[in-house]
Simulated scan of single mutants.
Amino acid sequence: MSLLSLNSMKTNIGQYAVLHDVTLEVPEGGVFVLLGRNGAGKTTTLRSIMGLWQPSPGSVLFKGQDITAMHTADIARLDIAFVPENMGVFGGLTVEENLILATAKGRFDPARLKRIYELFPALETFWTKQAWALSGGQKQMLAVARAIIEPRALILIDEPTKGLAPAIVDAMADAFREIAQNTTILLVEQNFEFAKSLGRDMAVIDDGRIAHSGTMADFAADTALQDRLLSLSA
Rank of each mutant, 00 (worst) to 15 (best):
residue 71 H to K: 13
residue 43 T to G: 07
residue 139 K to E: 12
residue 30 G to T: 07
residue 144 V to F: 07
residue 20 H to A: 07
residue 152 R to N: 10
residue 181 Q to A: 10
residue 128 T to V: 06
residue 58 G to W: 04
residue 166 P to A: 04
residue 160 P to Y: 01
residue 157 I to N: 09
residue 63 K to H: 13
residue 164 L to T: 00
residue 156 L to E: 05
residue 204 V to T: 14
residue 79 D to C: 08
residue 214 G to W: 14
residue 69 A to V: 07
residue 179 I to S: 06
residue 230 L to G: 10
residue 131 A to M: 13
residue 75 I to M: 02
residue 179 I to V: 08
residue 162 K to M: 03
residue 51 G to E: 08
residue 207 D to C: 08
residue 152 R to Y: 12
residue 209 R to Y: 11
residue 190 Q to F: 02
residue 183 T to P: 01
residue 220 A to T: 09
residue 42 K to Q: 04
residue 135 S to G: 13
residue 93 L to R: 01
residue 67 I to K: 00
residue 210 I to T: 13
residue 217 A to M: 14
residue 113 L to I: 06
residue 229 L to H: 13
residue 41 G to D: 08
residue 202 M to K: 05
residue 63 K to A: 11
residue 187 L to A: 08
residue 20 H to W: 01
residue 190 Q to V: 09
residue 217 A to F: 04
residue 145 A to I: 08
residue 36 G to C: 10
residue 216 M to I: 14
residue 232 L to G: 00
residue 124 E to P: 02
residue 221 A to M: 12
residue 218 D to T: 15
residue 145 A to S: 12
residue 109 D to F: 01
residue 31 V to D: 05
residue 171 A to M: 08
residue 163 G to V: 02
residue 121 P to F: 05
residue 23 T to K: 11
residue 178 E to W: 08
residue 71 H to D: 12
residue 193 E to G: 14
residue 126 F to Q: 10
residue 86 N to C: 02
residue 168 I to G: 05
residue 3 L to M: 09
residue 18 V to A: 02
residue 21 D to W: 07
residue 185 I to A: 08
residue 118 E to V: 01
residue 29 G to D: 10
residue 108 F to V: 09
residue 92 G to W: 00
residue 147 A to S: 14
residue 47 R to K: 15
residue 197 S to E: 07
residue 62 F to E: 04
residue 102 A to P: 07
residue 105 K to A: 11
residue 91 G to R: 00
residue 209 R to S: 10
residue 204 V to C: 15
residue 83 V to H: 09
residue 220 A to N: 14
residue 53 W to T: 12
residue 97 E to P: 06
residue 19 L to M: 01
residue 59 S to I: 02
residue 141 M to L: 04
residue 123 L to H: 00
residue 67 I to H: 00
residue 203 A to K: 05
residue 176 F to E: 07
residue 215 T to Q: 15
residue 205 I to R: 06
residue 174 D to M: 12
residue 208 G to C: 14
residue 32 F to D: 07
residue 64 G to P: 09
residue 148 I to K: 03
residue 11 T to A: 05
residue 136 G to I: 09
residue 181 Q to M: 04
residue 11 T to W: 01
residue 160 P to C: 00
residue 41 G to P: 11
residue 170 D to E: 15
residue 121 P to R: 00
residue 202 M to G: 14
residue 122 A to V: 00
residue 5 S to N: 08
residue 7 N to V: 13
residue 187 L to F: 12
residue 90 F to K: 00
residue 184 T to A: 08
residue 166 P to T: 01
residue 129 K to T: 14
residue 84 P to F: 02
residue 2 S to E: 05
residue 205 I to G: 07
